[in-house]
Nucleic acid binder design. Sequence first.
DNA 1: TCTATATATCTATATATTTATATCTTTATA
DNA 2: TATAAAGATATAAATATATAGATATATAGA
Lengths: 111, 111
Amino acid sequence: MASDHSLELYTLKAELCKSFADPRRQMLIDALRKGESTVGNLARALEIPQAVVSRHLAILRERGVASARREGTNVYYSLSDPKIGEACDMMHQILLGQVEKNKELAERLIA
Amino acid sequence: MASDHSLELYTLKAELCKSFADPRRQMLIDALRKGESTVGNLARALEIPQAVVSRHLAILRERGVASARREGTNVYYSLSDPKIGEACDMMHQILLGQVEKNKELAERLIA
DNA sequence: TCTATATATCTATATATTTATATCTTTATA
DNA sequence: TATAAAGATATAAATATATAGATATATAGA
């Protein structure tokens, strides 16, 4: 029935969001927006242990957010879809809106 | 320093995403897009126990995603920002893109 | 007191991190 | 060619922490 399908869809959406729901993965996604990069380069640039970067990239890969391409001993990761970057921008805008609201609230409280 | 601020920002974004990262909350957000609603109505409509709905709404409220307004014994919840709905639409589009890719892959494998 | 909502406690499950080790690929060398 | 060493990445095990759901109970307002 319809509600079952919906539940599946909601679950998929939730899992997609879950893949964004970690600070390190946010950093990785942001870094990958500038172009593909290797595990090692990301680890050095973001100052995150290699195993942690590899683990998080695997999560992004498993959820279809990132893609991997091997070249020699290196593995290059990239975002699977530019919309992923746009989604992060949207999160940013929502956060800005929240700050704005708090600012308004603060100003009203002071006045 | 800059990297600390960034970490904070990434953490905020991650927490925002975390608030979206549950099927029930996806359902609640989707329901709230149609307009404000009470805890009880949402619980009945979505067939989720009252305590669970209340809990999830509290999470959305704490993270600034939803707002609450009391009217008598009822509490009306609503989305704090229409951009939240748009963010969900974007997730939907990303999912569609993934399905599309899988379809292409499947067709290539068959051929 | 009744209704609607929130919360506390308990339990089960999921998640992230650390450390160590395994795998895969290239390169060097006997 | 076979093999060993080195570099890059992935994975496993252990631990700590976070999260969700169920049930019962507390709180707020009519």
